[in-house]
Design a protein around this nucleic acid. Structure first.
Length: 301
DNA sequence: ATCGCGACCTGGTTGC
DNA sequence: TGCAACCAGGTCGCGA
């Protein structure tokens, strides 16, 4: 379940391994992952063939590779997507959806030594196909398709005061607001629960009833949780393999509430509760994060 | 504008 | 053993 730290790890790997290479050929093995591209699979492939990759960028959970003609290859990993950089010709993964053959990096701009002189394959593997790829016309700087996505809380241009103000104008619960990618990007279900636990706030607390310092606190804790995952994930893959696996190793160790229903809260020992929320799960400590009392009707005789 | 919900997907796990 | 139901959740589009 890739959230900001996992996607950033992929972006970093792409920057080091594919920037400067040219797309020699494209094979779309399943149409669904390119459903957002109005050109269709063949048009998608044609629009990319021959283009040089000039960068690797991210906004929230979206990635894009600026191309030498001003377009971009825009991607989202969805729930189960991976972008792998591999030696050409390896056996196909079970859920391989799109394969790109990339030339060597002519300008040797990749800082990883001799690998820049060898061709590689970029593979989009996605079991559940919630993710996808598309060519974004003129999207090299910022694809218009994702102009509505807010900056993430690590972005120097993220406007914290504006975020606080917007949250406090909304009646929805703070968890829903944390997951709203137009308010702040990069936070998903798992890190939202972790940030709320650390901030001792229940996710149902309405934004409009939070004090500014409470909004700042949960944002700060989101940075702590995602920053820790970033630090550990950033060094966890090897030279020719850019992986994304939300369930692996580094990830689980730092979880205090997510997936821990019935287990003792690490702070107070109270059993962690699980509730349904937006067709998924929320985990919280009922003592550290008390359920907000429903507001009474305005008038009573 | 905002809110909240269902649809989209597959495969591993659970329950009968 | 076989099969169906359930579960995971990011994003979009819809109706209210």
């Amino acid at each position: 379940m890739p959230e900001l730290p996992e996607v950033e790890t992929v972006r970093d790997g792409l920057e080091r391994h594919v920037v400067g290479r040219t797309i020699e050929s494209v094979a779309v093995l399943h149409p669904r992952p390119v459903r957002r591209d109005h050109r269709g699979p063949a048009g998608f492939a044609a629009a990319l063939t021959g283009r040089r990759i000039d960068g690797a960028r991210r906004r929230g959970k979206y990635l894009w590779l600026p191309l030498d003609n001003g377009d971009a290859l825009l991607g989202h990993l969805g729930m189960s997507g991976q972008l792998l950089v591999q030696q050409p010709g390896l056996p196909e993964e079970r859920h391989l959806r799109v394969r790109f053959a990339l030339s060597p990096c002519v300008e040797r701009r990749i800082a990883t030594g001799d690998s820049a002189a060898e061709p590689v394959e970029l593979r989009f593997v996605d079991q559940r196909m919630f993710g996808g790829l598309a060519v974004s016309e003129g999207g090299a700087d910022l694809p218009p398709e994702i102009a509505h996505i807010a900056r993430d809380p690590f972005d120097p241009e993220f406007d914290e005061d504006a975020f606080v103000a917007r949250v406090r104008r909304r009646s929805a619960g703070i968890k829903r607001l944390l997951l709203d990618q137009t308010l702040v990007s990069g936070v998903g279900n798992i890190y939202a629960d972790e940030a709320l636990w650390r901030a001792r706030l229940h996710g149902d607390r309405p934004g409009e009833r939070l004090r500014p310092i409470e909004v700042r606190r949960v944002l700060s804790e989101a940075r702590v949780v995602m920053g820790a995952a970033l630090g550990e994930g950033g060094t966890s893959f090897d030279a020719l393999y850019v992986d994304i696996n939300g369930r692996s190793g580094y990830f689980d160790r730092s979880l205090h509430v997510y997936g821990r229903e019935g287990m003792a809260c690490d702070r107070c020992g109270t059993p962690i509760r699980r509730i349904e929320f937006m067709n998924r799960s929320s985990f919280f400590c009922p003592r550290c994060q008390p359920v907000p009392r429903r507001r009474r009707a305005a008038t009573r005789h």
